[in-house]
Amino acid sequence: MTLKALIFLCLGGIFFFTPTPTQAGVLEDNHCGSCHRLNAEDTNTNPAGPDLHYAGQKFQPQWLKQFLKKPAVIRPGGLTTDPSFLQGTPDNMSPHPSFSEEDTSKLVASLMNLKSVESNFEPVGTEPLSKGQRAKIKYQFERTFGCISCHQSLNLAGKVRGGVSGPSLVNSGNRLQAEWVNHWLQKPEVFISKSRMPRYKLDALTRDQLTQFLMTLKNENIR
């Protein structure tokens, strides 16, 4: 009788805990969770890939689709939370797997549903920057805030330049959502407990213009 009860409990447990084939299941099926944190409660402090539990608030779906089909390196220096970060060139960094068209569509749909951050993201101005504003904010990006020291960007000649310890911003206009960039600049602690990037106390206008500037950086502008 005891054995029967035990078997019943075990089977019941399996039935109870088996995940339903939700969209999150697509990510699990493709083992995304082995390198990325897919929910904010995940206690893995050294994931091999960036957090994805707010992917739906951070990335543009079209970029995600292209990336999953044909992955490109975003962090040439490796992931900043990796204990071996800064210890040398990350030669042994395994490439991100690529996926078929069908899988990509499912994965993108799942990723765009991951929105763990509850803060209200401020809207970013839609009025394009004037030539003067763009020149000024580019100057601040490179010289006042020193962003170029750690992030790759495009210089006036359309050439890639800049440091590699932070993620590349060369294609940030296609990769990221403007509201996420703005929120990151304002409250990075919402997304990461401790970043290697300096904190800045930017006024709303500067933050907005910096966001708009970053959204103009696109691969198609490389010359």
Partner: peptide, 23 residues
């Protein structure tokens, strides 16, 4: 120092961090 400064100044402070050659 390792967390912030070493990105540019290197883990041993010799000015040879991973960003050094690109600045």
């Amino acid at each position: 120092y390792q967390w912030y400064c070493a990105q540019c100044h290197g883990t041993k402070g010799k000015g040879d961090g991973i960003n050094a050659k690109l600045l």
